[in-house]
Amino acid sequence: MSRTALDRWLNTTGAWALALLWFLPLIFAVWTAVHPGEFATRFAPLAPLTGENFVNAWNAAPFARYFLNSFLLVTFILIGQFVLCTLAAYAFARFTFPGSGVLFALVLLQLLVMPDILIVENYATMRMLGLIDTIAAIGLPYIASGFGIFLLRQTFKTVPKELDEAARVEGAGPLTVLWRVYIPLAKPTYLAYGLVSVSHHWNNFLWPLIVTNSVETRPVTVGLSVFASVDQGIDWSIINAATLMTSGPLLIAFMLFQRQFVQSFMRAGIR
């Protein structure tokens, strides 16, 4: 074997070994979820398949309600973020006004000091507003997203000024220009940011755990933790089925849109 061939063989083997290692937890979870409990730790290749674990998990906790809550939550956050971040990004990208530099620095500060860390004070604020145990309380701190404002500002800045001016000459006001010129040209950024935002907030746990305390408001992540810790003891087959179920929507979306997903994370990362 020549040196380059050996080199390639080593690289391929290494890449695949790591990939299998990385995939192992998922394979394992799928294995236990689709087989009867007694095969959870016994790896017989011909073990009978079953969907019973999923049915049991679904019936053991109000997962339908949790899914609805998560769905409402990510929709609320996404719409709020799109509206607020678009307006703010437009202001930073195309308007000159006193204080814009300082205000933009304050927006960027949020990338470092995230609401995730300020749980104590934000809880007090929510209690003052009477919003404890509402879906609004889970979403509100995240709606004015520094990351979203920054990302959209960068995109809006690449829009040629001539397009903007042409629309203004025709008598369009600032909001019409935003709607007709900027937003259509920024569609890929919206898709990218939307995917990142949805997956982030579907997965968020600590803040929803703190501000919710009833079935009517809990998102799936909190629902799953309540279910796994209190109700089940150590029935791993059912816990793994529930785990896969909660990750299911994202995992399926990811498999279907793998290319877009990876590309949008890349795009979102180039800050």
Binding site: L87, A88, F92
Partner: peptide, 9 residues
Amino acid sequence: LLTPALVLL
């Protein structure tokens, strides 16, 4: 344009 985002921020 900035006001709504800044209030929440």
